[in-house]
Amino acid sequence: MKKTLYTVIKSIRTFLSEKFHQEDSRLPYFITVLVSLVIVVGGINLFIELTDTLKTDTLASYDTAITDYVLSFRNPMLTKYFVFVTDIGDVNGYLIVLSLFAFISWLVLKQWKYVLQATIVLALATFSNMALKRFIDRARPGIEHLVSVKTLSYPSGHAMSAMAFFGFLMYLISKLDIHRVLKYFLIFIFGLLILSIGISRIYLGVHFPSDIAGGFIAGFIWVVFCVLVFDLIELFRRDPNVN
């Protein structure tokens, strides 16, 4: 994405220079910031629209129908799988994943900044989720919980963190110069993990489907925002024309 973004900015700069016979080296970066804001604001608007419908009968009927359908698949084998993936999306799970990622970054990628960036994305998603839960104050579903929970319901912290953290890892993998099959395989695995973590919260009875949708939207907002900010910082650092 960095190369694509850089090419787009250079093209815009050339166009503006030819069009107005005067190049402002900072203008393309302002345009990039504007684009990022449009994406983030659009995502926030979608999140707010969903949040505004939490107490409506229409959303309640969808939540009930989807929950009943997911619960109809409950069996010992699936329960073990969803408990496992939901544990990956918990604090201890992320500590393990981050440790593995740090080791791989040190041994293979030789890029510690990726570990720092992934940690920042996860931290932003986690702390903002805690604030949103307190502000929205939605109770958990009143059905059997297969795992213990202590916090409020909306948006799902597991879904939000999974989308933000593993979504960002998918972006990083897309930039790596590795075999295409391996790249697509890893992206598929992380995508499947995000989806599994989201479904696990419904299956285990601790979240409404709308909680998962809200978490995914909020997590995706952080992915887009952080990717654009990180790339913009890198472009400012590398481009000698920017003051």
Score class of each variant (00 low, 15 high):
Lys3Ala: 10
Leu5Ala: 07
Thr7Val: 05
Ile9Gly: 02
Arg13His: 09
Arg13Trp: 04
Glu18Arg: 00
Lys19Cys: 07
Gln22Ser: 11
Asp24Phe: 08
Ser25Val: 12
Pro28Tyr: 01
Tyr29Phe: 07
Ile31Asp: 12
Thr32Ala: 09
Val33Tyr: 05
Val38Cys: 10
Gly42Gln: 03
Gly42Thr: 11
Asn45Asp: 14
Leu46Arg: 01
Phe47Pro: 09
Asp52Glu: 14
Asp52His: 12
Thr53Met: 15
Asp57Thr: 10
Thr58Lys: 03
Thr58Ala: 12
Leu59Asn: 06
Asp63Phe: 04
Asp63Val: 05
Ala65Ser: 12
Ala65Cys: 04
Ile66Asn: 08
Thr67Ser: 11
Tyr69Lys: 03
Tyr69Glu: 11
Val70Phe: 11
Val70Gly: 10
Met77His: 02
Leu78Arg: 00
Thr79Arg: 01
Val83His: 02
Phe84Pro: 01
Thr86Gln: 06
Asp87Cys: 06
Asp87Lys: 01
Val91Tyr: 11
Tyr94Leu: 11
Ile96Cys: 12
Ile96Val: 13
Val97Phe: 12
Ala102Val: 07
Phe103His: 02
Ser105Ile: 09
Val108Ser: 08
Lys110Asp: 09
Trp112His: 05
Lys113Thr: 10
Leu116Pro: 03
Leu116Met: 06
Gln117Gly: 03
Gln117Pro: 02
Gln117Trp: 05
Phe127Asp: 14
Arg134His: 14
Phe135Tyr: 15
Arg138Trp: 12
Arg138Phe: 14
Ile143Asn: 08
Val147Phe: 15
Val147Leu: 12
Leu152Ile: 08
Gly157Met: 07
His158Arg: 06
Met163Trp: 07
Met163Ala: 14
Ala164Cys: 10
Ala164Lys: 00
Tyr171Trp: 09
Ser174Asn: 07
Tyr184Arg: 00
Leu186Arg: 00
Phe190Ala: 12
Leu192Ala: 15
Leu193His: 14
Ile199His: 07
Ser200Thr: 11
Ile202Gly: 09
Gly205Lys: 00
Ile212Asp: 10
Ile212Val: 15
Ala213Lys: 01
Gly214Ala: 11
Gly214Ser: 11
Gly215Ala: 08
Ile217Ala: 15
Leu228Pro: 05
Arg237Pro: 14
Pro240Asp: 04
Pro240Val: 01
Asn241Thr: 06
Val242Ala: 01
